[in-house]
């Protein structure tokens, strides 16, 4: 009766196993996508006028002369040890190019999440509490507008008002490891605010929907009919059951940050993974593109996995099996 049940452990183990399989499949997709190309990739990269030797050199470099299974295993093995191969563009190890940029991106996403999550969940709960009020309607239109705007539109609006007209922040996020925390934060602020705007809107709408969905339950009506005050209805009766949906909302939007980060980094010339990714796509620098994809996809899968495990843990039916 007490403590965790067998079912719970089995569910979590199953979910973790599924996450591992997904990661494996994703790595396979990323690898195969590059290798199952129609025609000869080396030829395509270099164009029609390339010499035989140049094509052969690229083939060797890509390992195209070895069997596919062996290439995949050595690529995956390397990636697990932090070795993503060498860039085509400047011949430097991919890991070296990515290292600092990955930390920068994490910093940016972290700042955005630190502002967005409490703000969005708080506003979402308020909108659910005062649903159909003026506040709720205005919030609905405002969040819809925010979601509908491309990230670069929000970014340029922020630049216009907070960097050009009122120079509070820098329009270019020139961060480097030797900056102290506050300067760094100040330079990260505009991209972080842009991401916040997009993600908060999403998260707030979903939090509101999750709670309203719950407020229609018979047990909430029962609590009201017992004379329980509105505040206690929300805190004591709705919130313990709303944990799972809210956790999912947060995870989904943190995952969404990953996509948003690419465009925003380009706008603000922020030295993160996203910017490197876009530049590498343009020059078709395959090892870097593969590494970036793997990093983004792994983060995405881990976030979803965490959310799933947390919501399994917050379910009373699973925590207290029959």
């Amino acid at each position: 009766m007490s403590g965790f049940g067998f079912d719970l452990l089995r569910l979590i183990a199953k979910r973790l196993g599924l996450g591992l399989i997904t990661l494996f499949v994703v790595s396979l997709i990323i690898f195969l996508a590059v290798n199952l190309l129609p025609g000869d990739f080396a030829q395509e990269i270099l164009g029609q006028g390339a010499t035989e030797e140049a094509v052969a050199a690229i083939r060797r470099e890509l390992g195209l002369d070895q069997p596919m299974v062996q290439r995949y295993l050595s690529w995956l093995g390397g990636a697990l040890q932090g070795d993503f191969g060498t860039s085509f563009g400047n011949k430097r190890p991919v890991a070296e190019l990515l290292g600092q940029r990955f930390l920068n991106t994490l910093f940016l996403a972290g700042v955005a999440a630190a502002i967005a999550v409490p703000l969005a969940v708080g506003l979402g709960v308020l909108a659910a509490l005062y649903r159909n009020s003026v506040f709720d309607r205005v919030a609905n239109v405002a969040t819809l507008t925010s979601i509908s705007s491309p990230e670069f539109f929000l970014a340029y609006i922020l630049i216009l008002f907070l960097a050009v007209v009122n120079p509070v922040f820098d329009s270019l996020s020139n961060v480097s490891p030797d900056l102290d925390f506050w300067t760094r934060l100040q330079r990260t602020m505009l991209p972080a605010l842009t991401l916040t705007l997009v993600v908060t809107a999403h998260m707030m709408r979903m939090t509101r929907a999750a709670i309203i969905n719950l407020l229609a339950s018979p047990y909430i009506e029962m609590a009201r009919l017992k004379g329980v005050s509105p505040a206690r209805v929300i805190v004591h009766h709705a919130l313990p059951n709303a944990l799972a949906p809210i956790i999912n909302v947060i995870a989904l939007n943190l995952a969404y940050l990953i996509t948003g980060v690419v465009v925003v980094e380009v706008v603000f010339v922020y030295p993160g993974v996203g910017q490197l990714f876009v530049d590498s796509v343009k020059i078709r620098d395959i090892p870097i593109v593969q590494a970036c994809c793997l990093i983004f996809a792994a983060t995405y899968i881990l976030l979803n996995l965490t959310a799933d495990v947390l919501s399994i843990l917050s379910n009373p039916r699973l925590r207290h099996p029959k």
Partner: peptide, 20 residues
Amino acid sequence: DALMAIPQLIFALLLITIFG
């Protein structure tokens, strides 16, 4: 499921790299 495990924009960029 497998296709959706990679964020859409990221996957799009990967495929555009490959197909040109």
